[in-house]
């Protein structure tokens, strides 16, 4: 048997030589400095608004405030716990000399993925994924590819595996580049800074029962894991669209429109709860980590993961069925 690694090697070679990846890297290399500068400006404004550059006294003040609230007997037990955690976090800032309003590069990459997960990264993925099959059609090379002694499903599987490798590469490079670039401005420290997580929602209320602190590096690993998952779902859907539509422009357009629609719908019509079953309204997975309330009722991390999985599996079924059965006409 011609070995499967060879097929994957072929696909990766095509991806690299097509220079799409270079475009994606270039976009990242240009946009991350811009985002870094934007973040820098926000930090500067914050410092100005606080009216003092001495952040240590400010935090000490906040800790004292919180301790005062704790002594009050009217505060419910649940709140009490949250306040204690807050104090713990603020104490850490003091002990380790971290200005929470002017964080290091790790904080930047954590915030960056929060913003990038629902639109920016998916768009980059679409740029490289949408033409993975359709370009073989428009280039006519599909005829060479499918007249080899290799089953069609293997050809498509090799493409899919390469695509997932590519997604992993892009997510990793995003993290690395944003760390390296933002570190120039914010400094490279802060991996162990404690971050709040463990929020949950039920009936529209934020449940803080499970809230706890995790070191930032752990939080970042989780965020990027979730981002990888969301991007993989985007890549899987792109694969299907690329199989169904012969032109690269059409498949890229369809995917972009769908992703943007998913983002817009969540913001425009949070009361229409049916849209939570739409795949691209479920991309903002990191919101569940940070406790940002979801716009639509009834969404949770397991729910979103299941929706993404179901859509991905159906897309794969369609993609493989169509690709193995389809007549390659002109």
């Amino acid at each position: 048997m011609p070995n499967f690694m060879g097929l994957i090697y072929n696909e990766l070679l095509k991806m690299v030589r097509k220079k799409r990846i270079l475009v994606v890297l270039l976009i990242l290399a240009i946009l991350i400095p811009i985002f870094t500068y934007a973040q820098y400006r926000t930090v500067q404004t914050n410092i100005q608004n606080l009216g003092t550059s001495d952040w240590k006294t400010l935090i000490q003040q906040q800790i004292v405030d919180n301790q005062n609230r704790l002594t009050s007997s009217r505060i419910p037990e649940e709140w009490r716990k949250l306040i204690k955690i807050s104090i713990q976090q603020q104490q850490y800032y003091l002990d380790h000399d971290i200005n929470p309003t002017s964080p290091g590069a790790p904080t930047f990459i954590r915030k960056f993925i929060d913003q990038a997960i629902s639109l920016f990264l998916p768009l980059l993925i679409v740029v490289v994924a949408a033409d993975i099959v359709s370009s073989e059609h428009s280039g006519g090379t599909i005829k060479l590819l499918l007249t080899r002694p290799v089953q069609r499903w293997k050809v498509l599987l090799a493409k899919y595996v390469s695509l997932i490798l590519l997604v992993s590469f892009i997510v990793t490079v995003t993290a690395l580049l944003s760390y390296l670039i933002s570190g120039l401005v914010f400094g490279y420290t802060g991996w162990n800074m404690p971050v709040l997580t463990g929020f949950d929602t039920q009936n529209d209320e934020l449940i803080t029962q499970g809230v706890h602190l995790v070191p930032q590096w752990k939080y970042i690993l989780m965020s990027y894991g979730l981002a990888w998952f969301a991007c993989t779902a985007v890549a899987t859907l792109s694969l299907m669209v690329s199989v169904l539509l012969r032109s690269t422009a059409a498949s890229m357009g369809t995917m972009l429109a769908a992703i943007i629609a998913g983002n817009l719908l969540t913001q425009l019509s949070p009361s229409w709860t049916t849209i939570k079953y739409f795949v691209f309204t479920n991309l903002s997975l990191t919101n569940y980590l940070s406790g940002t309330p979801m716009m639509i009722e009834g969404m949770s991390l397991p729910f979103s993961l299941i929706i993404l999985c179901v859509w991905s599996i159906i897309s794969l079924l369609i993609a493989f069925t169509v690709f193995t059965k389809k007549d390659i006409l002109a």
Partner: peptide
């Protein structure tokens, strides 16, 4: 060769051949 000899234009001739070689025993 079905219709036009459409190969991968962004690869060299040898890379094209090597690619197809990897698909056959």
């Amino acid at each position: 060769i079905v219709e036009n000899p459409e190969l991968y234009p962004y690869l060299t001739g040898r890379e094209n051949l090597e690619m197809f070689a990897r698909m056959v025993e």
